[in-house]
Computed example of a mutant assay.
Amino acid sequence: MTPSLTQYVKKRNGRPLGAKGSLGAMLVRALGAPGFDLFWVYWNPIFSYYLGYRLYRPLRRWLPGPLALWLTFVGCGALHDAVTMLARGGPALLFTPWFALMGLLVLASKAWALDYGALPLAGRALVNLGLVLLSLALVLAGGLRV
């Protein structure tokens, strides 16, 4: 059974949808996650709800889990690029390669069971943000941006 968006957000955030402090709770949980794969479990639970149930699950019916997960990241990037193109009125291709690379980092962190949970919150936040920014820097340095 698919949970409602409200149930999903409360499970991910620890607070009900729209409750006071829910944004802060999401940030602390995501940034303080002990692994890059768990960072994405807590980051933006509203968007991840729809990605999970409208993109990942249908893909998972036909594809192995890791490929379905990676394609979900690619699809998420493509959605971000589509919105950017609508807003700019022109081409944009930053988010698709960026999210594709972050998806690979998530798969690698799961495969290697990377766990930096022993670090203090600030250390975990630095690692998680560092991986997001490193992947962005790699995409920008590779000229994969339009």
Rank of each mutant, 00 (worst) to 15 (best):
F47V: 12
A125N: 04
L59N: 02
A87Y: 10
A125R: 02
D115Q: 03
Q7R: 12
G75V: 05
R124Q: 10
G14E: 02
L79S: 03
F73T: 05
D81H: 01
G52K: 04
A113H: 12
K20S: 15
A122F: 04
Q7G: 14
P34C: 06
L5T: 04
L105K: 03
L86I: 10
R61G: 15
L107W: 01
G90P: 01
T2Y: 11
A68Q: 01
R60W: 04
A100H: 06
A141R: 15
Q7Y: 11
A108Y: 06
V146A: 14
L17D: 14
P3M: 13
R57F: 13
M1N: 15
K11W: 08
L101V: 14
L136T: 09
V132C: 10
P58M: 13
C76G: 11
W43M: 09
A33E: 10
F47Y: 14
R124Y: 02
A113Y: 06
V41G: 00
P91E: 07
V106P: 01
A19L: 12
S22C: 14
R145S: 13
L79M: 06
T6I: 14
A82N: 05
L144I: 00
W40Y: 10
R54L: 11
L69G: 00
V83Q: 13
S109C: 12
F39K: 04
S109K: 08
Y53K: 08
V41M: 03
M102E: 07
V83C: 06
V139P: 00
L104R: 07
M102P: 00
R60I: 06
L86D: 03
L23Y: 06
A100R: 01
S22I: 07
A82V: 10
G117S: 13
L144E: 00
Y53T: 09
A92Y: 04
A141V: 05
P34W: 06
K110A: 01
L86H: 04
F36K: 00
L59T: 02
G75P: 02
S109E: 09
K10T: 14
F39I: 07
K10E: 15
G89K: 09
T96W: 01
S48L: 03
L133I: 09
T96D: 07
L67E: 08
W70V: 01
A118P: 07
L114M: 11
L101Y: 06
L144S: 01
A82Q: 08
A19I: 10
G52H: 08
W112A: 13
R29W: 10
P64M: 15
G24N: 12
T96A: 12
A100Y: 03
P66N: 08
G18P: 09
R61D: 11
G77T: 10
R61A: 15
A137G: 13
D37W: 09
A137T: 09
